[in-house]
Each structure stands twice: as structure tokens, then as C-alpha cells.
Design a protein around this nucleic acid. Structure first.
Lengths: 229, 229
DNA sequence: ACGTCAACTGACGCCGGCGTCAGTGTACGG
DNA sequence: CCGTACACTGACGCCGGCGTCAGTTGACGT
């Protein structure tokens, strides 16, 4: 229904017209709404946010919103999809060919890229990390799919690393959860506390050191290679 | 209003009465509702859950719910408060006196205790880790206070550890975030995937190894004591 | 000058979920 | 056996927020 409507308009493109009353094109207006929605979600949280909040922030009437989106769910989904894509593209699968850049540098680069993206779009990061869960069952599934993909990628990399002897023994999936959880929390705090974008390198270093060596030095001269016990 | 009502009833205690129609005392019924609410929240998530879901699960009428709780917010808050208390009590401040149990063992015991509590009450763990954020502004503050306390405790411990030379250099607060984030994610996955309670020891060990040594072994024979760069 | 049409508007009606309260059932005291 | 008090009930009315649609605007073609 709303779908048919949208399709109908979409087909006409710009048949002869020039400036559509306001200074914004169709696509631009859509972006404006998206940006406003993003800010509202970041400020109030998904569930507290209303369509009225979004249109007020955008500066358009209620009805206009529905010319561009099905409902609140749809804007949210659109925003998240874009962010998922951005993040996914920021990650480079690690190349274990002997000729490639050292694995450590590749890993660090990935950490750095993720942190960079998240600090560059604080609002989206906050939304992803604090509102994405529990929007509705359908979206929960989509979110889970995204996380699963990330976890799987990291798990595979860790397994590769174990074969090469550059990753410690242990369940790779568990390590993946630990790593991603650590990163998520750090990013959430960084974004919430409004850390400057310049601190990306510092954070990257801290994360890298954490996954490399941990921090507890309880048995300073313990045998290194195998499990502690 | 509802407050005055509750106070009025609360004052009378059990003046002469014996068995109140059903097999449950006032306090028991309250617990029954709490348990039902917990299950509903765990299954549907806070925002999807309705009062009707809760009373249906409990097996009482809608009105009865309001004899025991102000509203959905209130049950949720009650549940979380109890869980906060449980978790807080599970943690023992680390004793750095030379005569005390080795720090490593104390740390491991704390990790173990937290994991144990969370695996023992999967529903509450899931709720804490996936629904507690974004309930409403007031509750968000309460949650933040709890997390801040945990973070602060760990941060202080890490700072102590640095003085003793058993914790690596670096920003202790960042380490605290990384650690708590890692643990949160692991617990969430463990609880969601329905891991058996027996795996608590295995998980504890993995977490402990992670914070002790990380897992990346990229420079197998690098100088150990100081920062990598 | 006028008709047309896409873009936009916002008042309106609807509905899910909430909180209430007049009524019911029953155990106990007299 | 009746009166009272209390736990409990669930139909009801209300409301915030949603999605719609009849109407307005103004650029453009003719």
C-alpha cells in the first residue's frame, strides 16, 4: 500500500521539473529526515523517540515523514543498514600470506578503522550500542545477523592465527566474544563521554595491547607458551 | 495516590487473619508476580512486554497486579534492584595485604562469582544485558550509577595493582571498560545460547587468561615488561 | 492567465495498552 | 448466621502516539 505509493512516485523521476519548491531535492529531503531521526534517536533513545520528535527536528509536517518512510521502524532500519555497511567496509579480512603486511599491523589497522568510524559518527555508534537491541523481533534478527557475521569473521581469523601459532590456544569463538565485547564497551564509553576523535590512536593502542598481552602480571616469570595451569 | 493506598494496606500487616483465600501470602504473591514478570521480560524484552502478558503469565487478573506494583516500570526496577544487590554482594574487594590470598586467586574468584551468579539466573542476566538500557531516563540513571560503581571498583583495583607492579601500565579506567565489556558480551552469549552452568569454570579460566595474557602472540620473543612500542 | 501536478501540510480518527473502581468471593469474628 | 474486611476481578474509559487524506501551495508548461 504505502509500498505501491512509493513505487508510483519513484518511477516518475524528474519529468521536466526543475526546482521543487524548496531548495531540496527528493533525495536530499530524505537525507535531511534521516539525519534528524539519527539525532533524535541518539538523544532520546529509540523507544522514547516519537515521529513528532523527528518531524519537529527535521522542520517538516507529520505527513511529509510518511512520504519518505513507512514508519519509525523503517527510518531506524535504514540508518542502521547504512551504518552496518560502513562498518563492514572498514574491516579488511586478514591476509595470512607470508608476503602480506604483518598480521599484527593488519589487526591494528582493523581496530583503528572501526574506532575511527565510530568516533566519526558518534550518534550512530551510540544508537547501535544502546538502542539497536530490543527494537522489535524482526530488527533483532537483523542485528543478530550482523553481529554473527562479525563474530564469525573474527573467529575464523583467530582460528587461522592459531594454526600459524600467533594466537594462543583456547576457544576462538569465546575469544571473539571477549574481544568484541571489550571493543563495544570502550566505544560506547568513548562516544558517550564525547572523547575527541584524535584519541582514536590512543584507544587503538590500548585495545591492541589488551588483546596482545592482557594486563595482569601476576606471575611475572611464569612459563609463557602454554595454558597457565 | 496508589502510594497512599499501598501504605494503608501495608500498615495492617496480618491483624488476626490466617489463610488469605489462596495458598499464597501477600509477600508470596508479590514474588510470584515478580517471577512471572522476569520471565516475560526475558522472553519478550521490556518494551514488547505488556502488563497483560505479565498477569497472564502470573495467572491473576489485571487489577491484582496494581495491588502490588505501581506499573511496569516498578516491577522492572524491583527486579533489577535485587539483581544489582546480588551481583554486588558476589564481588569481594581485592585485599592487597601481603598476608592475604594471592591477588590472582582473588581476581579469579571474583570473575567466577559473577559468572556463577549470571548463569544461575539466566533470565535476569539476559534482561540486564539487553533490556536495561533505554527503559526510561530515570532508570537509565540508576543503571548508570550501578555500572559506574562497578567500573570504579575495578579501576581502583587496577590502580592498586599498578602500584604493586602486577598490572601493566596504561589507563586503568580504559582497562576496566575493556574488561567489563568483554565479560558482559561473554555472559550475554553464554546465557542466550543456554550454556550449562557447569561451564562456569571453563569460562572463568578463559576470561582470566584473556586479562592475564591476551591472546595475540605476534612477537613471540618480544621484551615483556614494558609497553610494546 | 490558467490548469496541472508533485510536494507538502496538519487536523482527525483510530487503537493498543494503561490504570481504575464498582463489584464478587470468602474467611473470620461476633 | 450475619457483618465485615480484605484479596481479587475484569470491563471500562482514557490517552498518547500513529497513519491518513482532503486540502493548500507554488513551479511549470501552455
Amino acid at each position: 500500500m504505502a509500498r505501491a505509493r512509493e513505487a508510483g512516485r519513484g518511477g516518475s523521476a524528474s519529468r521536466g521539473r526543475k526546482a521543487p519548491r524548496s531548495a531540496q531535492s527528493k533525495a536530499e529531503r530524505r537525507s535531511t529526515i534521516l539525519a534528524a531521526a539519527r539525532d533524535v534517536f541518539a538523544k532520546r533513545g529509540y523507544h522514547q523517540a516519537t515521529i513528532d520528535d523527528i518531524v519537529a527536528e527535521t522542520g517538516v509536517a507529520r505527513g511529509t515523514f510518511y512520504l519518505y518512510f513507512e514508519d519509525k521502524r523503517a527510518v531506524f532500519s535504514d540508518l542502521m543498514d547504512r551504518f552496518f555497511t560502513t562498518l563492514t567496509m572498514a574491516i579488511n579480512r586478514i591476509d595470512i600470506a607470508p608476503s602480506a603486511t604483518p598480521v599484527a599491523d593488519q589487526a591494528r589497522a582493523n581496530i583503528r578503522a572501526i574506532i575511527g568510524m565510530c568516533l566519526a559518527d558518534r550518534a550512530m555508534t551510540k544508537i547501535l550500542l544502546s538502542d539497536a537491541q530490543g527494537v522489535d523481533p524482526a530488527f533483532d534478527r537483523k542485528l543478530a545477523t550482523f553481529y554473527d557475521a562479525v563474530v564469525q569473521l573474527l573467529t575464523d581469523s583467530l582460528r587461522d592465527g592459531q594454526k600459524l601459532g600467533i594466537v594462543a590456544d583456547g576457544e576462538p569463538r569465546v575469544m571473539a566474544y571477549l574481544t568484541i565485547g571489550a571493543l563495544k564497551e570502550l566505544l560506547y564509553q568513548a562516544v558517550t563521554l564525547g572523547l575527541a576523535e584524535e584519541s582514536a590512536d590512543v584507544l587503538t593502542q590500548q585495545v591492541f595491547e589488551f588483546v596482545s598481552q592482557g594486563y595482569l602480571r601476576v606471575h611475572p616469570r611464569e612459563a609463557r607458551p602454554k595454558k597457565a595451569r
